[in-house]
Design a protein around this nucleic acid. Structure first.
Lengths: 152, 152
DNA sequence: TTTAGTGCAAAGTTTTTGCATGTCC
DNA sequence: GGACATGCAAAAACTTTGCACTAAA
C-alpha cells in the first residue's frame, strides 16, 4: 500500500541526511531508487524498483540498482529479505515492527505491537549471546486469501 | 552441533513413516539425504549435504539433492530459509522453536522458550488474518563472536 | 513389471564484478 | 579537477528442467 506524502517526505529527509553524513554522493539514481523503495509498504522486489525507477531515469542500469540497494542496507536505510522462492524484497521502514507472512500468497504485512516489544526472553535465549533486537514472525493465511475459497 | 544418536533415530523413524504414508519410494538417496540433514542442528547448506552424502553414495547428483530437499519441505519434514547472501539452509527440526541470528557470523542457533510460545498477539496483529504460528527471531552477537575482539 | 526416481547435461534466474565513461562535490 | 558512481557487458553463483536410464514396490 502507498505511504502518505507526509511519511514519504520524512523518509526522504532522513535518507538525505544519512547519505550526506556518510560522505557519499547524492546522485539522481540514488535519490530515485530510495524514493521508489519508500513509496509503498509492500516490500517491493528489486525488479519492481528497477522498472519504476526506469520510468523517471530511462538509462539507469540493473546493476546500479543492485549496488545501491546493497549500499542502503549497509547504511541502515533499509532491510532486505529473501523469500524461499523468488528474488529478494526490500523494506524501507526501519522503525521497529513485526511481520505477518501469508503462507498462501507470500505477502508480508507489517504490524506494530507494544506487547511484543516488551518480550521477556528466558535465560536459555539470553545465554546464546548479546541480544540487539527481537522480532516476531507470524505465519498464517492473510485476510485477502481467507476470502478466496479455493487454493487458486 | 551433532545431534544425539537417540534423537537422530527418532527423526529417521518419523521420516520413514512420513515417506511411506505419502506413497513415495524410499530410495537410498532419500534416506542418506535426510540423515545428513538430521545429523546436526546447525542448519547445513545444500552444498554441505551434497558433499557429505557423496561420501556414502558417490554417484548422487546435485539436482537430486535439490529435488529431494524440495520434496521434504512439501512433506513437512524440514524447513528451508535463505540468508541475505549465500545459498539456502535447511533445518530438520520441525518441533516449535525460535532463532537467534548472529549478525556478525551469520550463524543461526535454535532455542525453545515456553514464555514466547504463549505470546498474546494484539488485535492489530490478529486483524491481519488467521494466525497459524508465531516465532521469534532474535538478532545479536552470538557468544562465540563476542569472545572474538575484532571484526576480523 | 510398472511406475516413480535418478543422473546427466543444459538452461534459467538472480546477483556480482571489471573497466571505461560520466557526474557530483 | 579529482574521486566516486554509473552503465555496459560478461561472468559467477545458485537453482530448475527435459529426457533417457535405473531402481523401488
Amino acid at each position: 500500500m502507498k505511504r502518505s506524502a507526509k511519511e514519504i517526505k520524512r523518509m526522504m529527509d532522513h535518507f538525505r541526511e544519512v547519505v550526506l553524513r556518510a560522505g557519499i554522493k547524492l546522485t539522481q539514481q540514488r535519490i530515485e531508487i530510495f524514493r521508489e523503495a519508500a513509496l509503498t509498504d509492500d516490500h517491493p522486489k528489486l525488479e519492481t524498483i528497477f522498472r519504476n525507477v526506469r520510468r523517471r531515469l530511462p538509462t539507469v542500469s540493473l546493476d546500479t540498482v543492485y549496488r545501491t540497494l546493497h549500499l542502503y542496507q549497509e547504511l541502515g536505510l533499509l532491510a532486505a529479505f529473501r523469500p524461499l522462492n523468488g528474488p529478494a524484497g526490500f523494506d524501507a521502514d526501519m522503525t521497529h515492527h513485526h511481520h505477518f507472512v501469508c503462507t498462501r500468497c507470500g505477502a508480508i504485512h507489517d504490524f506494530v505491537d507494544d506487547g511484543l516489544d516488551r518480550l521477556a526472553l528466558s535465560p536459555s535465549a539470553r545465554r546464546l549471546g548479546q541480544v540487539d533486537s527481537a522480532h516476531v514472525e507470524i505465519r498464517g493465511i492473510c485476510a485477502a486469501c481467507a476470502r478466496t475459497p479455493k487454493k487458486s
